[in-house]
Design a protein around this nucleic acid. Structure first.
Lengths: 170, 170
DNA sequence: CAGTTTATGTCAGCATTGTTGACATTCCAA
DNA sequence: TTGGAATGTCAACAATGCTGACATAAACTG
């Protein structure tokens, strides 16, 4: 594992020879970049006594209005109990509307209220500004590669969720 | 902010026109990919009653042996109190060695013990395997773009830390 | 159709890891 | 040498993971 090399065999099979050092750079880049990625919304959230968990919930409710708790937690990769706490706060504060399902009354369909949409917008805007700046700085070809590697890094079910979301917005 | 367009002006200045939708895909890719990125070490850590914080500390101590608490917390972006709790556990468990600084006795120089190196290796290996697979799947050109965008996404001080680490390993 | 099982969501309590505040020790500068 | 700054530790609190217990609704089974 730690011979500092990677590749399928002695040669020929793959053109990629990745040293442990190269891989470590990628790992560290991922770590540092994620800090920047979340920094701007985090600052806004801190003012409002909310956290990242609230942001994530609002993001995906906005993305798929009417989604259920069950669906949401599979996307977020947390337990329903953990998500529940966050949703309760958002509902109490009037940012999320939770309606008993019409077809299946066990389910709750989730929607952002006007105020919820407003905050989500504010958070997304902050995050998009950084994303846009990074994309511009890196250039168009880089963006392709960026997305490719990220997608390849996802677990299978997350890759599916990701594809579903993209297709959902036409 | 939300006109679905991005660019410096009406045209000509930039060749990149990024819709909010494109940016959102990047944001979601980042979120889902980070889950995958941390999933494998997380599984190992859970067995050992450690968390991500322990992994991060061990990673950077391994990367820069003899580093101080102060330096470490600036890299990790957490408070010294938060880091301290994690370090205390690692020292007690014999994975990290904390030596009073020779030049400045207020400082503590941190080193992995043999057992610490062993666990760090195990965690890194798991993470590298996924990274390597993602790189291979995405291809060499993609890797360049990936790193470029990530670096552009970092906060300035993290970009500096990232550069320092790379240079430190020749 | 009655009774049991499964699915969905809520409430309670615990663990990890972030935070701030108070403090001891050491260094440095006036 | 004395007061302030820097470094690190200890304590207590908050956010957000987790598991377990439970209520309700739906679905299945005989």
């Amino acid at each position: 594992m730690s011979d500092g090399r990677s590749g399928s065999g002695f040669g020929g099979e793959s053109l990629l020879f990745l040293t442990d050092e190269q891989l470590r750079q990628g790992i560290e880049a991922m770590f540092f970049a994620y800090q920047g990625f979340t920094a701007d919304p985090d600052r806004i959230l801190a003012e409002l006594a909310y956290g990242r968990a609230h942001h994530r919930a609002m993001h995906f409710i906005n993305r798929a209005p009417g989604t259920t708790v069950n669906n949401l937690l599979s996307i977020l990769g947390v337990t329903k109990q953990s998500l529940n706490r966050v949703l309760r706060a958002l509902v109490e504060d009037g940012l999320v509307d939770s309606r008993v399902g019409t077809l299946d009354k066990r389910e709750r369909n989730l929607y952002l209220t006007d105020r919820g949409r407003e905050l989500e917008q504010r958070l997304s805007d902050a995050q998009r500004i950084r994303m846009r700046a990074a994309y511009k700085q890196a250039g168009p070809e880089a963006v392709q590669g960026f997305k490719k590697v990220l997608e390849a890094m996802m677990d299978a079910d997350m890759r599916r969720a990701y594809a579903d979301l993209r297709e959902a917005s036409q």
